[in-house]
Simulated assay, not measured.
Amino acid sequence: MRTGLWTTAAGVAVVAVLGVLVAAGVVWPNRILAAGYDVRGVDVSHYQGEIDWDVLAEQDLEFAWIKATEGASHTDPRFAANWAAAMKTDLLVGAYHFMSFESSGAEQAAHLAAEVPATPGTLPPVIDLEFYGAFYDDRPTPGEVHAILDPLVAGVEEHYGVPPIVYATDEAYDLYLADRYPNLPIWIRSVVWAPRLSDGRDWTIWQYSNRDRLPGYDGVEPYIDVNVFAGTRTELEALTLD
């Protein structure tokens, strides 16, 4: 009996230690699986502060998506500087838009188009669909979200000539994207385990870490998001704007 209790206690302690290490960003169970993908990249915003793109681009990276806009009027204060500097590297570069539940999709598409040039060779714009603020607890209905997302997707595709990629958490995917939008590439966030979309769909980009540290930036946010692409660099280049 005593041996069994000790074994149980030791098992609980091991699980607790692993939990702490995962929370601290020291151990990530999905890193081994993510290492099986050759094409790796980051996504950044003003929270990473001033970025030395030449240094960052040397960190075994192939692509970077940069926050550009949010809602119908906000522009990331470092977007222009990040865009200009990243474009001078060998990285494949794209912009992302944080979707608001509080303004129309048409207005948001127009705001993105006004801030992000439709530059040949750049990656498709990304629509970031996730909960924020009070919407973590008071989630919009699928109908409310689709009424915004549908014209936003249409406006982005019309302006840039390619369908946008949609970034989502598991919760947002299940509520708003599962079994819908079959032509849109999916960028899924899964920072502990390998992603498995609830409707059996294949993901295009996987954000496997939100707590990496890489040389080349010095902002209020010490961590940087790291992602992998489900394919080769040539296949990622095939998604870029003409």
Rank of each mutant, 00 (worst) to 15 (best):
V20K: 07
I188D: 12
T3F: 15
A68D: 03
G71H: 04
A13L: 12
S45D: 14
M99T: 10
L56C: 04
E158Q: 08
R78Q: 12
H74R: 08
T232L: 02
H111Q: 00
N227P: 15
E115K: 06
V44E: 05
S190H: 06
G231M: 09
A57F: 01
D242K: 02
G19V: 00
V162S: 03
V220R: 12
G105A: 01
D212E: 15
L184K: 03
V93P: 10
D179P: 00
A194P: 12
Y217L: 09
R2W: 14
G41V: 09
N30L: 05
T3D: 15
T7H: 00
H97R: 03
R201F: 13
L149N: 09
L236I: 09
A154E: 13
Y173F: 12
W206S: 05
I127M: 08
W193K: 15
P124G: 05
Y173L: 03
A109N: 03
W6P: 03
A13R: 02
E115V: 08
G49E: 07
W83D: 00
T204K: 00
D60Q: 06
R78N: 06
S190P: 04
W28Q: 12
D170N: 15
L152W: 10
S45R: 09
V192H: 03
P77W: 14
D38I: 11
I148C: 03
G200F: 15
N183W: 13
V39K: 02
